[in-house]
């Protein structure tokens, strides 16, 4: 399991860097402050954003570790599609996947909608970083 942890902790740093250095997120993310859970079946990640920057990413958080407003949940296989440089159809965005794959959007969807532009962009960064599952 040590190798797996190394891979996933590397991903956390990659995803943080990709987000914090992304021109679009930094140009438009001034009010992007929320927390969401990326549930990838084999692992989950609690992404905490503050003013467009990654504040913290918790890997496999315990049940009471911290709070979040919404969840993007899908099988590892679906997320692997998101992690391809050119994702296959229906793995190219959270709405597409919510309509056509096992991906579900759960929790307070109003917070998702209030931050939709930035969330959509941040999820696209998985095409650069790959996914840790």
């Amino acid at each position: 399991m040590a190798a797996e942890t190394a891979v996933t902790s590397g991903w956390i740093e990659d995803f943080r860097r990709a987000s914090d250095e992304d021109a679009e997120l930094q140009a438009h993310g001034r009010y992007y402050s929320c927390a969401y859970l990326l549930d990838m079946e084999e692992h989950s990640y609690l992404v905490q954003m503050h003013a467009g920057k990654v504040e913290e990413i918790l890997e496999d958080p315990g049940p009471l570790d911290d709070r979040y407003q919404f969840i993007i949940r899908a099988s590892a296989e679906t997320w692997r599609g998101f992690g391809q440089e050119t994702p296959p159809p229906m793995h190219h965005g959270i709405f597409a996947a919510a309509f056509r794959t096992d991906l579900s959007l759960e929790g307070d969807l109003l917070v998702l909608m209030q931050n939709l532009r930035c969330v959509v962009r941040q999820i696209e960064l998985l095409r650069q970083t790959g996914v840790p599952v």
Binding site: R117, V120, R127
Partner: peptide
């Protein structure tokens, strides 16, 4: 933004 980014992934990458 909800309309524009909501239809964003109707387009191909």
């Amino acid at each position: 933004q909800v309309c524009a980014s909501g239809v964003w992934d109707l387009m191909a990458p």
